[in-house]
Nucleic acid binder design. Sequence first.
RNA 1: GGCGCGGUACCCAAGAGGCUUAAGGGAGGGGUUUGCAAAACCUCGAUUCGUCGGUUCGAAUCCGACCCGCGCCUCCA
Length: 462
Amino acid sequence: MEFFNTLSGKKEIFKSIRPKKVSLYTCGPTVYDYAHIGNFRAYVFEDLLKRTLIFWGYKVKHVMNITDVDDKTIKKAQSAGKSLREVTDKYIEAFFEDIDTLNISRADHYPRATEHIKEMADMVKVLVQKGYGYKKNGSYYFDISKFKEYGKLAKINRNELRPGERIESDEYDKKNAHDFALWKEKKPDEPFWESEIGPGRPGWHIECSVMSTKYLGQPFDIHCGGVDNIFPHHENEIAQSECFANKKFVNYWLHCHHLIVNGSKMSKSKGNYYTLRDLIKKGIDPMVIRYLLLSTHYRKMLNFSFETLAQSDSALERIRDFLRELKERSFEQGKNPLVQKFIDQTGAEFAESLGDDLNISMALKSVFNFVRKINKLLSKNQVYTEDSKLIVSALKKWDEVLGILPKDEDKELEASIKEKIDQRNKARKEKNYALADKIRDELYKQGIILEDTQDGVRWKKR
RNA sequence: GGCGCGGUACCCAAGAGGCUUAAGGGAGGGGUUUGCAAAACCUCGAUUCGUCGGUUCGAAUCCGACCCGCGCCUCCA
């Protein structure tokens, strides 16, 4: 398979360090608030990547960090008059609820920054000993002039960096404006940890360097995040880790593009964001959100709007209706050789498309083409019992990657609705269509859609 | 100022030199089916890929210029 590696700026054939095993690290949430759907775009992309690797036969070890100490979490705790831990625990819980809602599969480890303070301090200590870091007052900084390859990920020439407009008060003493904090000295009213290098708290980048390699080794295979992490976050991780261990940090860097709303990036600071919870409250099906986030290639900007959301709903409905038809329709005994042929064709295209840098459009195209071909057979009554089982299991197999189809669940209706359906059947038999249509309208208003088929009436939820 | 991404039908979105006089999905028109619907099927739908030049036997795909939108360079997925 091939992936676009930010490091080389081109698609590369993927080769894992150990055969058929992949070590994957993805940048996780900073738990100071609910995540918005722009954040979830990244997590859904990473989920697709992971499921694709598994589909291709890899065993994936996935680690996602949780940033539970930084400026924002501290600020939030202070303003809420709570402890850091109280605040971060709350949003960690919310985060897990949200990824479950979106059917994002769980990582193997979710290390928390605050539980790896000692390792971070140790790493800082070594970096200073080796001459890559220096101390100013109680803080430590990484000296980017000491790492000749600095800028190789972001393609930035360190001499051409433009100093940021916002310089924190505690960073006035840096040698170079772009040297970054490894360790921030203890400040009044801020949480701190005692350590061999003095009291304080870790800088932002050091946690990922420490936790990724602790669980995955160095180098490891794939590191993901949003494009906005390329610089400075990932660039700095590379600098720290490669200077620390004198070896390559990560083989493949995959970054997903932003989710755009009304032409600009969705972000907390701009205030133009929706949390997952906002959308669920509006009655939007989480699987439709997942479909929308999934259906645009990860390296392209995704334009979020309620119109594209509605389009995703319809597209997904086409697949769901198809699955329902196969599960609920009655078939005659037998087998149509065309069905297996279509399944094989589609399966091959599907896997190949995803293996080509996660070309989701092509993958979905093969699924939709498959749906149309089978629907055509269905309309001619050329699908049989054996076929329907094969089709359903093929769809489920592909859905192990996509994760968008509903789980098998007992379809139970309230007695009152069942009764209405019976009444309507009776009315139809008596050709009392006025009454039958009236009942159908009533049920529609209650969220139940009725469809009359060869096998009798069938219902679905709106 | 530096670096980077993108502009394909009404909307979303593939394609990256000939297989394509451009996939797939949504919306829309017409038809089949249906008591009527719904779903499904058939069918219509860009002679054209931001603009203008160039390279080539051949370009949406390569090169150049320009226009427009966006991102990063500062916390951000």
